[in-house]
Design a protein around this nucleic acid. Structure first.
Lengths: 219, 219
DNA sequence: CTTTAATAAAGAATTTATTCTTTATTTGTT
DNA sequence: AACAAATAAAGAATAAATTCTTTATTAAAG
């Protein structure tokens, strides 16, 4: 099989594409539940309010092949997306900071398929230690070091208060963590090669508020 | 004052810019706490790991003016950002669905300056009704209709289960809501003019997992 | 068996966003 | 007072992402 095209399998998908993939997956699971076997890009585009050629290009990154006049096989497509997104492998993660957001993520991980499994949470608050949220035990933060020595966890979710973020992140690197999902507002300063995924919920509020104010006149 | 330039005040800021603004604001609050009075774009860029000219252009959208050789006045800059982001006005919001994420947002709204104030939460779960999380009362969902008649709330945060999302969203529109911050996985189908801000936390997980897998070989 | 319509796939063009370059301004220094 | 250095601001160039256009493939209809 030749792989020359710009959007063919093998090329690295751009970030906007990656961010759209979970949306396709959720949608396709609904479609599958409805007993639909094949679906076309134009249909997906219409249902998700996006450009059909973008759907084609996004899905092409997963390596799936569609058939003219028929569309994509829904099962194949779901499988292809899950594989590309790494959902078929176990992605174990630590969570640091079992506050509001941390707890929500723990309770959340089953319902919403995030594609990763939080296997332990850590906090310094004695009152929280020993608790179990969404099947995840909250452990004393100092246990992180011994536990990470035995387990081979590469991903950490950082939901600490801002002032603790940088220090905790450095600890995490020392524990062998390679990717940090950072929910704090802090710009983490870490060695080259560490993957940091900043996720600021406030960014979305900013877009919403600004758009509302821009529209303001005609309400 | 002439406003001809592409990045001058008055033009609508692009979404990537809007998403970066909360990051600047948090950073500048730290800078202010350190007693620093002026700051330059190159310094901001270095600290936030981004291009200094991008900093200049992003900040220009708020209408703030900097001085060569000096930089921006920190107070002015913070004020300008807050005004542009609508933080100086009261942005009241309803929250629908007081589950894990909804509760987290309620508890969260003080610490993290989201720029909006949740004034009431609604749920259909009898066990949750009457609870108070982060100063927000959880009310019976049916109360939404009478309450929205008296108050003039334009923003709603949608944190219901997916299957309820579309129906609740339609109710919200009937209650006069103009902007929905949608945390569900559902692509809402709503009348023209309604602002929908989709916020899928899973999108970030997808980017993180893919980047980790792409780097996979050299770990 | 031929034709037609739908669609994936590939490529081109457009638009948008980022980065680079130049200019002009301002403060500190000689 | 003139000069030099730093920096905001504006504009140009580059890069990236999206949308549009064309092509080729496939299944259904006649």
């Amino acid at each position: 099989m030749e792989e020359t095209g710009k959007y063919k399998k093998g090329r690295q998908a751009p970030e906007p594409t990656l961010k759209r993939l979970p949306g396709y997956l959720y949608y396709l699971e609904q479609v599958r539940e409805d007993g639909i076997l094949n679906i076309s890009a134009p249909t997906i585009g219409k249902d998700l309010s996006c450009d059909p050629t973008q759907v084609v290009k996004d899905l092409a990154f997963t390596g799936v092949k569609g058939k003219p006049r028929v569309g994509y096989n829904v099962y194949e497509l779901i499988h292809s997306l899950e594989e590309y997104m790494g959902h078929n492998q176990v992605n174990e993660a630590f969570l640091i900071g079992a506050g509001n957001l941390g707890s929500a993520l723990m309770a959340y991980q089953q319902e919403q398929a995030l594609g990763l499994r939080i296997i332990a949470a850590f906090d310094i608050d004695k009152k929280k230690i020993g608790e179990n949220i969404g099947g995840v035990h909250i452990l004393e933060y100092s246990k992180l070091f011994s536990l990470s020595g035995r387990l081979n966890v590469k991903i950490a979710i950082l939901t600490t208060p801002n002032q603790a973020a940088q220090e905790v992140a450095e600890d995490l690197i020392n524990c062998g963590i390679k990717a940090i999902w950072n929910f704090t507002s802090v710009n983490l300063n870490l060695p080259e090669g560490i993957i940091v995924q900043n996720t600021s919920i406030g960014s979305y509020a900013a877009v919403l508020l600004r758009r509302l104010n821009d529209a303001g006149n005609n309400l």
